[in-house]
């Protein structure tokens, strides 16, 4: 095993007096990222709609990996703007991942998650005791799922 100490150009970025403060950089980046919220929610809403459609009666077997992909999309995009929505989608990811191992997914548990995503989407997006209680409920649903 060879041990090397490479010289990185990034090392010089901290020594430059012309730089901006970290706080300023974070503030600028956050505003730039927020500019995408409208576009991001179009994708998020489409993902939730697709999940709801998959859960509808008569739609046949649910595919855990498709559920995972749609839930992960919500985590990726909604999480930046509405943390509770992200936590609910993460819980659905956990459920889908568990189902990928067991081979079958509990449709009822997925439906509960999807309805919760819709509910949280209609709320103001901020964390509160109510949203925490809702997420705790989802965690319990995943824990019970086989």
């Amino acid at each position: 095993m060879r041990r090397v100490y490479p010289k990185l150009r990034l090392h010089n970025t901290l020594r430059d007096p012309l730089g901006i403060s970290v706080e300023q950089a974070v503030q600028r980046a956050t505003s730039e990222m927020e500019a995408f919220s409208g576009e991001a929610f179009v994708v998020v809403d489409a993902a939730i709609a697709k999940l709801r459609e998959m859960c509808a009666p008569g739609q046949g077997e649910l595919d855990p990996s498709t559920v995972f992909d749609q839930a992960e999309l919500v985590v990726d995009l909604a999480g930046l703007y509405t943390p509770p929505l992200c936590l609910a989608a993460q819980s659905l990811c956990n459920l889908a991942q568990k189902a990928m191992q067991s081979g079958s997914i509990d449709r009822g548990a997925v439906s509960v998650h999807v309805e919760t995503l819709l509910l949280l989407r209609s709320m103001d997006g901020k964390e509160s005791p109510t949203t925490r209680a809702i997420i705790d409920g989802l965690v319990a649903v995943v824990a019970k799922a086989r």
Binding site: G19, A25, V26, A29, S31, E32, M33, F36, E39
Partner: peptide, 17 residues
């Protein structure tokens, strides 16, 4: 590979200068 995620990531680094 996700265009939207790439846009968001890009906007973060734009903000960092």
């Amino acid at each position: 590979d996700n265009r939207m995620s790439l846009d968001i990531l890009n906007s973060a680094f734009m903000g960092f200068g």
